[in-house]
Amino acid sequence: MHIIIIGCGRVGARLASLLSRAGHSVVIIDRAPGAFRRLDRSFKGAKIVGVGFDRKVLLDAGIDRADALATVSSGDNTNFVVASIAVEDYHVPRVVARIADPLRAEMYSRLGITTISATLWASARIHDLIVSPDLHNVLTVGSADVQLYEFEVPVRLVGRTVSQLTLPAEVSVVAITRKGRGFIPVLGSSFEPYDRLLVAAQTGSIGKLRAMLGLPD
């Protein structure tokens, strides 16, 4: 893929190195030439000094043939403007903007931009590690609005049905692995000993999930 990254701070440099190592064609843009020192030596992509929403800079970076663009500079407004150019003017198929302010992240999402709020994500994960360290988190969805956990069915739920571990729009059993085979259960499916469960929960409902599993608060 041809990927453009705006902002060569810690996030941008790391992302650029990861993608470059994976064999993608990467162009990274930053207004400060000194920022590129953060890239590691394996980085094979191109570097452009300039403002991320400058049309000439974006065209030099190949925005008209880009498969993806990530705008991760430290300025929320810059990231929003760059993302809107990529989506509306150049129809880049995958566009992600880093937005620090959670309120703005939500607002920009309403305007059709995919946003990652590091503030929301990190605080939700840290909250999770503090209040729920014994539940194994395998995935977070969106800006950590939904968490996916994998664990063995607790003894108290063996013989009970999936409906006992379901709260509409809050907690849902996504899949069960039984004797090495996975399936998607229905509400009436019964849990058997040693079932491994994949459970999705709204971040705000983790307390309720813990209560249903018999875990301490």
């Binding site: 929403f53 400058d54 407004n77 929003f80 403007v81």
Partner: peptide, 29 residues
């Protein structure tokens, strides 16, 4: 310019303001 664009976008698309005027600082933008 990035701030003015954000103000304009919010004014129109979130708050439905009838008339929006914006200053361009760098002519390239």
């Amino acid at each position: 310019d990035e701030d003015n664009l954000v103000v304009a976008e919010l004014a129109r698309r979130i708050f439905d303001v009838p008339r929006v005027i914006a200053r361009v600082n760098r002519p390239e933008n």
